[in-house]
Simulated scan of single mutants.
Amino acid sequence: MENSATTKAKVREDAGLDIASAGFEKEISKITLAAGGIMAGLVGIWGITCLAAGLIAAGGPVELAKAWFSAVTGG
């Protein structure tokens, strides 16, 4: 069985390594979250642009709905 002083020393060593690298990991997490948010925003803008283009090409929302139902049902 290990001595409790030895165990505490090991825990402190491990904790020190985690604390030292925590700042780096936190920065990586922030960058990843920001990149994900930017990508989600770009996809949203792209979707709205496509919907607007479809509305313009179809001639309005009613015509777009009719064309969509026709395409889905095959009629």
Score class of each variant (00 low, 15 high):
residue 1 M to K: 05
residue 1 M to W: 01
residue 2 E to M: 09
residue 3 N to Y: 05
residue 3 N to P: 02
residue 4 S to L: 08
residue 4 S to D: 11
residue 4 S to F: 15
residue 5 A to W: 06
residue 5 A to G: 04
residue 6 T to M: 03
residue 7 T to Q: 10
residue 7 T to F: 08
residue 8 K to F: 10
residue 9 A to E: 14
residue 11 V to R: 09
residue 11 V to E: 04
residue 11 V to P: 00
residue 12 R to M: 13
residue 13 E to A: 08
residue 14 D to G: 12
residue 17 L to R: 14
residue 17 L to I: 07
residue 19 I to W: 09
residue 19 I to H: 14
residue 19 I to E: 15
residue 20 A to H: 04
residue 22 A to Q: 06
residue 23 G to W: 00
residue 23 G to E: 01
residue 24 F to M: 08
residue 24 F to K: 14
residue 26 K to Q: 11
residue 27 E to G: 00
residue 28 I to L: 07
residue 28 I to E: 10
residue 28 I to V: 13
residue 29 S to R: 13
residue 30 K to Q: 09
residue 34 A to F: 02
residue 35 A to V: 12
residue 35 A to M: 02
residue 36 G to I: 03
residue 37 G to S: 12
residue 42 L to T: 12
residue 43 V to Y: 06
residue 44 G to H: 06
residue 44 G to A: 11
residue 45 I to V: 15
residue 47 G to C: 04
residue 48 I to R: 13
residue 48 I to Q: 10
residue 49 T to L: 03
residue 49 T to G: 03
residue 49 T to A: 11
residue 49 T to Y: 03
residue 50 C to V: 10
residue 51 L to M: 09
residue 51 L to Q: 09
residue 52 A to M: 07
residue 52 A to G: 07
residue 53 A to P: 01
residue 53 A to T: 07
residue 54 G to Y: 04
residue 54 G to R: 07
residue 55 L to A: 07
residue 56 I to R: 15
residue 57 A to Q: 15
residue 57 A to L: 13
residue 57 A to H: 15
residue 61 P to V: 09
residue 61 P to Q: 08
residue 62 V to F: 03
residue 63 E to L: 07
residue 63 E to D: 14
residue 64 L to M: 13
residue 65 A to Q: 12
residue 65 A to W: 05
residue 65 A to R: 02
residue 66 K to R: 09
residue 66 K to G: 02
residue 67 A to N: 07
residue 67 A to F: 01
residue 68 W to I: 15
residue 68 W to T: 15
residue 69 F to G: 09
residue 70 S to H: 00
residue 70 S to F: 01
residue 72 V to A: 06
residue 74 G to Y: 02
residue 75 G to H: 06
